[in-house]
């Protein structure tokens, strides 16, 4: 559930007592109409809070944790697991790592040369949400999240497919999996890795710790999933073309 407007206004008054709504919108880049609408409806999106915190040079994580729904964020700081870190590496970066570990004859640098490959792109990536959930899923996770939140499994899956997850569900997923709370918030792009308190280079070290076999198998899975989704897109495209051709 988004943040209650009352609590949000209280927070805003504490962190920026003299700023007007117009000032806040100007510095944070939020449209005035958007903010006004959220306030009228009584629900302020977490992303609004994060944008304003960034603009005011406050920690978005701490700002979120000051709200009742997200108190846990402050109480149990737990670093991301290696699997979570690896899940936040883009598929193309994984493939690049495979190549760079290969023999020079195939364009790689051998085992030692990972420093020669370009730096990993920052999270989130195109399938970061699903990859994150897969990384922490013990097989029953979706059921537990669904039972705890009342969100139907198919709606949950639909969000993962769209590479989205509401912050509330992301936190609920972390809780159900028993991992730190920042993983989901980074995977959904609400917070950056730095804002989440992840040590710099954490993803790279997690990647380096993978054996060649693990890395290759993981890259293979990702590639297969990518192929499937590309094929589905192509089919949809073909269907749409057919409709335009006959009925457009």
């Amino acid at each position: 559930m988004p943040l209650p407007a009352k609590a949000f206004q209280l927070w805003l008054h504490q962190v920026a007592p003299s700023a007007s709504t117009a000032d806040i919108c100007r510095i944070s880049g939020i449209k005035r109409t958007t903010l006004a609408q959220q306030l009228v409806r009584g629900k302020v999106a977490e992303s609004t809070l994060v944008s304003i915190s960034r603009a005011l040079d406050l920690s978005p994580l701490a700002a979120l944790a000051s709200f009742e729904h997200y108190e846990e964020l402050a109480t149990r700081p737990q670093p991301p697991t290696p699997a979570e870190l690896v899940s936040q590496i883009a598929t193309m970066d994984l493939l690049r790592a495979v190549i760079s570990r290969s023999a020079p004859a195939y364009g790689g640098y051998g085992d030692e040369g990972s420093s020669m490959t370009p730096a990993l792109s920052p999270a989130p990536h195109a399938t970061s949400v699903r990859n994150w959930v897969d990384a922490i899923d013990d097989g029953e996770l979706r059921h537990r999240v669904s039972a705890a939140t009342g969100v139907a499994p198919q709606n949950y899956s639909a969000q993962l497919t769209a590479n989205r997850l509401s912050p509330e569900l992301a936190v609920a997923t972390s809780r159900a999996a028993g991992v730190g709370f920042t993983g989901g918030l980074v995977a959904t792009g609400l917070l950056t890795e730095v804002e989440a308190g992840w040590p710099p280079g954490a993803k790279q070290s997690a990647l380096d710790a993978l054996s060649d076999g693990e890395l290759t198998a993981l890259a293979g899975e990702r590639l297969q999933a990518l192929g499937k989704s590309l094929r589905r897109q192509e089919q949809e495209q073909a269907q749409t073309e057919k409709i335009w051709e006959n009925l457009g």
Binding site: Q239, K242, I243, E245, N246, L247
Partner: peptide, 8 residues
């Protein structure tokens, strides 16, 4: 005919 064809 057009609809059936367009809707594949």
């Amino acid at each position: 005919y057009r609809i059936a064809k367009g809707f594949d």
